[in-house]
């Protein structure tokens, strides 16, 4: 009985959490370019893949997709390197001002992001980093850093010191300890960090719109927004593109979901 009740509750919440996505999918299969409709039912009336076809053949979508994949992968790699090193240092060593550093990282999330756009624009244009992936790469990898460092640090905190000490005795240097001992046993946490970096880069819009201006350089969220204009949105194309944008992120979550739980141990703040 208790199990049945639990299943029922879970089912209700699953519907709650998936319905909007289902709705978008539904719109993407329609051919009349409207977002809301009286005849919108739970099942689509007709299966028309026309919107997907147009998105892929008549727009720059393939280019945007390539750009997005490129940037997301690079951001994930760079972000992983930065957050692993920083988190390890903060977890294992009594670094001066550790508490201050951790709070500083949190503090970077506190300033309203919209007000950062104007200064970013000025800064990037001074360094000729507009229309260039490097500017975006640095911004993305560091904007997800605070969460990633906190999260990885708490995971490293749960690992026993003894293995590392043993490795040191066996003649490994510190880099080797990190590379050969700590990383392999931290796979779950690293998977989460990677996932977080990946989704940040994959779905970010505001910064990308500042940095990337040439249509050939744009990423998926920018392309997606280009189907939207005030009072004249191409809802069919928008929904189709939205489904395609959401798919990889969702897939990544599903594939990594077995790591998600054991890796996510956002833990103690003890300095």
């Amino acid at each position: 009985m208790k199990k049945f009740f639990s299943l029922l509750v879970l089912l209700i919440f699953s519907i709650y959490s998936t319905f909007p996505i289902w709705h978008i999918f539904n719109v993407s299969l329609r051919s009349d370019n409207s977002f809301q409709n009286d005849s919108l039912h739970f099942w689509p009336d007709s299966l028309s893949w026309k919107n997907y076809e147009i998105v892929f053949t008549k727009t720059l979508f393939p280019t945007w997709l390539f750009n997005s994949v490129m940037i997301s992968v690079m951001v994930t790699i760079l972000g992983l390197i930065l957050s692993i090193t920083a988190a390890y240092a903060l977890s294992r060593f009594s670094v001066q001002g550790k508490k201050g550093i951790l709070t500083f990282l949190l503090a970077t999330q506190m300033f309203p992001a919209t007000m950062l756009l104007l200064p970013f624009y000025i800064l990037l244009s001074q360094f000729h980093l507009l229309n260039n992936f490097w500017g975006l790469l640095i911004i993305y990898s560091s904007s997800a850093l605070p969460f990633c460092v906190w999260q990885l640090k708490s995971y490293f905190d749960t690992l026993p010191f003894e293995i590392e000490d043993a490795a040191r005795v066996d003649g490994c240097n510190r880099w080797q300890v990190l590379w050969k001992i700590v990383l392999p046993i931290s796979k779950p946490a690293i998977a989460i960090t990677a996932l977080f970096q990946l989704t940040t880069a994959w779905s970010e819009y505001a910064m990308a719109s500042v940095v990337l201006q040439d249509p050939q350089m744009q990423t998926l969220p920018l392309g997606l927004k280009s189907f939207q204009s005030s009072l004249a949105t191409e809802w069919g194309l928008y929904a189709a593109a939205a489904v395609i944008v959401s798919l990889p992120a969702t897939l990544a979550f599903i594939l990594l979901s077995r790591y998600l739980i054991s890796g996510l141990t956002l833990g103690s703040v003890k300095g």
């Binding site: 699953s14 779905s203 939205a242 944008v245 992120a249 979901s257």
Partner: peptide, 15 residues
């Protein structure tokens, strides 16, 4: 269920 329940996190917010 676990997968279905994390979907809101996976899909970009503006969508």
């Amino acid at each position: 269920f676990r997968v279905l329940l994390i979907i809101p996190w996976a899909v970009p917010q503006y969508i």
